[in-house]
Design a protein around this nucleic acid. Structure first.
Lengths: 243, 243
DNA sequence: CCTCTTTATAGTCGTACTGACTATTAAGGG
DNA sequence: CCCTTAATAGTCAGTACGACTATAAAGAGG
């Protein structure tokens, strides 16, 4: 759409900038990691931040998020991965430069590529979630919201498979839950529950995997057709929450 | 924040307008209703649309939504009611005038006031959800998303009480679930489930209500302190969904 | 080669929750 | 006074789930 200043002034009077920011989560070495970039320019130059950037005139926020993700991670095929809108942050003073509204997204990656610094970023890096220090802007809050949302969605959706490679073992799938929730789960019960949920996973017709691991080789599974889990796979009650 | 055109041109190059739109839901005469306005100006003049408007320079989208809601409904106190961000719609062509990104909100009202036409609206009206025809812009989709979200949140949150007046009977609460989900629920089982969930509702120390109704008077309840329901109150499986 | 460790998988048992019912109580209407 | 309506109480069987024990199949180390 062409920029029609007359139409703009007639209705809106004051311009906003719109950005798309991403909380990209993955599991590396059994630990939850998030993709961060070091800002190469003011404001917050030298601070770590979530990757993201301005939405272009011909893009939706989703498209912009996917483009930024490809640019920051060097990932060639970002079409298939899980990208989900988190929420929009629009506090008037969240960016010192001007009025910036950001649409935040959550992305989940199975086997993460090594990122490289992009145009606006001095460098990009996978950072263990627990060691993330204060971030630029309100990105701490965005990241916390993303973590909370992902944790909640694991309960009633098949989202956990988005952290896994195309073929995975039930042990790997369970590990996703344990890492995101920060709790240990009973292995036989987890297995029973997952297999009793139709469409969650399906066994790969081939054989068991033997790669490297000690112990009995595990059966390989693929993500099934189901997107929602009925009944849900609830977190163990952390506090005085009733059973 | 003052409009700094130099900063704007340096970073963003092209202005966006940001609006806040509202899917305001309530239950009237036992039927789910949504608040709609008839547009008083182009584009879509004469078409029905969700209430909403431009976010002002000193407002967050949440603040703008609350202000618009007060203006369109004539509701004096909108501070206490349930307002929740739904998602943001940013397709480049969703508004024929110019580039408009809208942050959509869902609001739930117990006893709805009669709305009145506002500044931009020829008139405002409560419309039964099932009779909503094609709306302006992409508001059909926003409304459908809102309905779906509310239905899902009823399962694992105490959101249903937001549809009810401060004091309500379990029959009224059950009616909220039935109207939003479009399914009938077993009354004794619903009662048992709600009362077994600590913090969902609490009995009002006073007496039972006798007002108008035929049948045995019901005990009055208030919303409890809990916001999430553990375990959730799941919808009856509509299709071939496994128990 | 034998044993220990590790991981996957199989199965058991008792409790809690749920869906489908039936029964009783307390109002109002004719 | 009986019928209808709505709230509330209770029953019962199937299922799900947490906690647990047992077995199987691999590698590591002697």
């Amino acid at each position: 759409m062409a920029y029609d200043k007359m139409a703009y002034d007639k209705y809106a009077h004051e311009p906003f900038a719109v950005t798309a920011d991403l909380a990209v989560l993955t599991i590396r070495d059994g630990v939850l990691h998030v993709l961060l970039v070091e800002r190469g320019q003011e404001p917050y130059q030298g601070h770590w931040a979530l990757p993201g950037g301005f939405v272009q005139p011909d893009e939706s926020a989703e498209t912009a998020a996917r483009r930024e993700l490809a640019e920051e991670t060097g990932l060639s095929d970002v079409s298939g991965l899980h990208l989900e809108q988190l929420r929009t942050y629009s506090e008037p003073d969240r960016d010192p430069r001007m009025r910036v509204v950001t649409v935040a997204f959550t992305a989940l990656l199975p086997h993460p590529p090594e990122p490289h610094g992009g145009s606006d970023a001095a460098q990009a890096r996978w950072v263990p979630y627990d060691t993330v220090g204060p971030l630029a802007f309100d990105h701490d809050r965005i990241l916390a919201d993303a973590h909370e949302r992902v944790g909640a969605k694991l309960e009633y959706s098949s989202l956990a498979t988005a952290f896994c490679p195309p073929e995975f073992t039930l042990g790997e799938l369970q590990h996703v839950y344990e890492v995101v929730w920060g709790t240990a789960l009973d292995r036989p019960n987890f297995r029973r529950k997952v297999l009793a949920t139709p469409g969650f996973v399906e066994a790969v017709p081939g054989a068991a995997r033997l790669t490297g691991g000690r112990g009995k080789p595990a059966t390989l599974y693929r993500a099934g057709a189901a997107t929602t889990l009925h009944p849900p796979l609830l977190r163990p009650t952390p506090e005085g929450r009733p059973a």
